[in-house]
Each structure stands twice: as structure tokens, then as C-alpha cells.
């Protein structure tokens, strides 16, 4: 690197006085001698000083509208800790409300437990899992009037996977609440005592539902969403799971009566389980649409994803 190249490379830091003393000196000396570099320096200074003049005042009404938004946020968020506040929050976010429930771990747990249904799996598969410490993971995100609640049970390993920041940027969340409760070894006896509510730091991003390539999408139209979720939970139970406590979480963090549609995401670790689920759900609901897409790479696709959209029947 010749002197001019070196100088130009460091000109910017030189101007900011962010170079070690001896380098500052070297460049200073070079600028005295070199007209071309010195000219570059002048241009740089001109541009940078113009940048410095770009600062603008806050627009009119900024502070008052910010105040309103802070009040809304406080009502949404801080009030969530007590019931009255929660009702308020939920009324506000009722429109466009989505719940995503992941039943990955529980399903697998249940499936391997229930040999009657699967018939071809031994409990040895389930053994290592029983020792794992699963976490229930809920996150609620709110952007304008959309709310997304994700909940899931995962073994500790899977939980990490699920909460890994999504590379895709479109779903960076405005506001994210996370509840994690460490569960007891036994997935069938939920422990609600360890609930901890905290606000996730802004920079984190949630794993989004779009990341999943749903194998099956089910749309159910019902007059009572709450009951429909109960029915789905019952089917789940029939397959061999007991996720009643999950139901409680859904109830706690959503206001189903105020909602037009609820979305559940179910993860099954085997195609058989999915088939059983589909069969059951078809008999349980009358107004139901099922769309199944054939998975292209079955071998790689370890999990079966089912999206269940429960819509409230429009009474008009």
C-alpha cells in the first residue's frame, strides 16, 4: 500500500480522531505534502459537516401521541399481570387473533407410550425423553391488532431449536411476551407453579409459523371456538396425550369469546399419528375442510405439521 492509499484508507478515522497518535501524525504529515489526498480530505469534511446539519426537531404532536402509545402499551402489557387488566388487553387485541399451539413433545411422548394405537413402537424410544426436562413455551406478539400466541411443549433440545432467532426478517416482532414454565419429568402432570412472565428483549425474533411447511391444513367452522378447542384436546387425549394444562394456557392468554378465529399448530412425529388425528377430527366436526399436501421429502421431514384453523360461524 502506498502512502496515498494508506492515507485514504484511514482518512475517515483520521477526521474522527480515532487513530493512534503516531498514525494521526503520519497522515497529518502526508496531507501537508499531498494535494490530492488533501483535496479528498476537504471533500470528506464538507460532506460530513453537511451530515451533521441534518438533525431535525421532533415533529409536532410526537410527544403526545407517544404518550398515548405508552399508555396503551402499559395497559396491554403491565396490566396482564392481573385479571382485570388482562380482560382489557384481550378486548383490544381481539381482532385478528391467532393461537398457535405446538404439541410436539407431548404428542411424541404420548404416541410412544400408547402401543395400542401405534403397535409398532417400543417404549425404549420414549425412555430418553422421559428424563428430559421439557419446557412449555408461550410467546405472544402483538403488532397493531394482530396477536400471535405460540405455545409448545418441547424437550429441552427442541425448545432451543424452536426459540432460535428466525433468520427471516419479516416476522421480527413488535412486542413479545414469553412464559416459560419448567415442567416436571412427567409430561402428564403439569406444574403450573413455576410460571414466569417476562418481556423478551426487542432484538429477539420468534420462530414464525410460516416456517413450517404444513402437511395438512384443516379449517373448522364452529359456533363455539372454546368448545372446539376442547374437542381437539379430547382427540389428542384419545391418541394418548394429556394436554389439559395446555388448554388452560390457551384460556389464560386468549379471549376466545372475543375472537373470530383461532389457529392451532399441531406437530406429530409420525404419519400414523397424523392419520389417527385426521380420522378423529373428521368425525368430531361437521363443518370441516381438510387439505393435505404430499410432502416431497418424506425422509427428511421427521415431523408432520397440521394447521387447524377454527373459525367462528358468522351469525348474519
Amino acid at each position: 500500500m502506498n502512502r496515498c492509499e494508506y492515507c485514504l484508507e484511514n482518512l475517515s478515522a483520521y477526521m474522527d480522531r480515532e487513530l493512534p497518535e503516531h498514525e494521526m501524525k503520519e497522515i497529518e504529515e502526508h496531507l501537508m505534502k499531498c494535494a490530492s489526498c488533501s483535496r479528498e480530505f476537504e471533500i470528506l469534511k464538507t460532506i460530513v459537516s453537511a451530515c451533521g446539519e441534518l438533525e431535525e426537531e421532533l415533529p409536532e404532536g410526537f410527544i403526545s401521541s407517544l404518550h398515548e402509545r405508552l399508555e396503551d402499551a402499559r395497559n396491554d402489557v403491565f396490566a396482564r399481570k392481573n385479571k382485570t387488566g388482562r380482560i382489557k388487553l384481550l378486548t383490544q387485541i381481539a381482532a385478528g387473533f391467532v393461537i398457535v399451539v405446538t404439541l410436539g413433545f407431548a404428542m411424541r411422548f404420548g404416541l410412544f407410550d400408547n402401543k395400542l394405537i401405534l403397535g409398532n413402537k417400543t417404549t425404549s424410544d420414549a425412555a430418553p425423553l422421559a428424563g428430559a426436562n421439557p419446557t412449555v413455551h408461550f410467546s405472544a406478539s402483538r403488532k397493531s391488532d394482530n396477536m400471535l400466541i405460540m405455545s409448545g411443549i418441547n424437550s429441552s433440545g427442541e425448545a432451543e431449536e424452536a426459540s432460535e432467532p428466525a433468520e427471516r426478517d419479516e416476522k421480527a416482532d413488535d412486542n413479545r411476551t414469553e412464559i416459560q414454565t419448567a415442567k416436571q419429568k412427567d409430561a402428564k402432570s403439569p406444574d403450573d407453579s413455576g410460571i414466569e412472565l417476562h418481556f423478551a428483549e426487542d432484538i429477539q425474533r420468534t420462530t414464525e409459523s410460516e416456517e413450517y411447511d404444513y402437511d395438512t391444513e384443516i379449517i373448522i367452522v364452529v359456533d363455539d371456538i372454546d368448545k372446539a378447542i376442547d374437542s381437539i384436546m379430547a382427540i389428542d387425549k384419545k391418541i394418548g396425550n394429556n394436554n389439559d394444562y395446555l388448554r388452560d394456557y390457551v384460556r389464560t392468554f386468549s379471549d376466545i369469546e372475543q375472537t373470530d378465529s383461532v389457529e392451532l399448530k399441531l406437530v406429530y412425529t409420525s404419519a400414523e399419528a397424523q392419520q389417527i388425528f385426521l380420522k378423529e377430527i373428521k368425525t368430531a366436526f361437521t363443518n370441516i375442510q381438510v387439505e393435505t399436501a404430499l410432502s416431497e421429502n418424506e425422509k427428511e421431514d421427521r415431523n408432520e405439521y397440521i394447521k387447524v384453523i377454527i373459525e367462528k360461524e358468522k351469525l348474519d
Binding site: L66, R69, L70, A73, R74, D76, V77, D174, N175, F199, A200, E201, D202
Partner: peptide, 8 residues
């Protein structure tokens, strides 16, 4: 950004 700072 400010609201998010507040809630987090």
C-alpha cells in the same frame, strides 16, 4: 422503538 423499550 420507544414503546418497545418501555415494554422490555
Amino acid at each position: 422503538a420507544i414503546v418497545r423499550a418501555f415494554t422490555s
